[in-house]
Computed example of a mutant assay.
Amino acid sequence: METKFYITITLKTHKGLESFAKFFIGNNRYRALDIFKQLKGSHNVSEKNILYFDFIETEKGLPLNLDFITCTLNQLAENCRIITKELFISENFESS
């Protein structure tokens, strides 16, 4: 089974943390990490943070959280734009 990389978006609610989006960003560790590093946000977490992006690797079906950032609503929009653009480039202009 091959390694897969994902970015998930999680929202803090009154029930706890709820993941509401998951992007498959490929099987190439370096490309996936490059995409994640472009995202806007901060590693500084406080109780005020409500939005999180997690960088996840799955191998043999088991998830491993490699990194995370927290962000504002405006950064959420920008991050979704970055991910979509990078996935479009990967799927249409880069050879596997």
Rank of each mutant, 00 (worst) to 15 (best):
D54V: 00
L73C: 14
I69C: 04
Y6K: 12
G61V: 08
Y52D: 02
E59M: 10
Q38M: 13
D67C: 01
I7D: 08
L33N: 13
Q75A: 05
K85W: 14
E18G: 00
L64C: 04
F88K: 12
K22N: 10
T10A: 08
L76A: 02
Q75F: 07
H14M: 02
L76E: 03
R31V: 06
A21E: 09
N74I: 09
N65E: 13
E59W: 00
F55S: 08
F68S: 15
Q38Y: 15
F93K: 08
S46N: 14
L62Y: 03
D67T: 04
T10Y: 05
F53W: 11
E94K: 14
L73H: 12
C71M: 05
F53P: 00
T72R: 00
N28T: 06
Q75W: 04
I9S: 01
L76N: 01
S95F: 15
F88C: 06
T10W: 08
C80R: 02
A32L: 02
E59H: 03
K12P: 03
L33Y: 13
N79E: 03
F24W: 06
C80L: 09
R81T: 09
I56E: 15
N65Q: 12
L66S: 06
Q38W: 15
N27S: 09
D34S: 14
K48H: 13
H43D: 13
N74D: 11
F68R: 12
D34W: 15
I82V: 04
G41F: 07
E78T: 07
T58F: 00
L11G: 03
I50M: 14
C80V: 03
K12F: 13
G26N: 04
E78R: 07
L62D: 10
T10P: 04
N44P: 00
L87P: 01
I35Q: 02
C80T: 01
F20R: 09
I50G: 09
F5H: 10
N27A: 10
N49G: 05
F68P: 00
I89D: 11
L87D: 01
I56V: 15
K15H: 12
E94R: 08
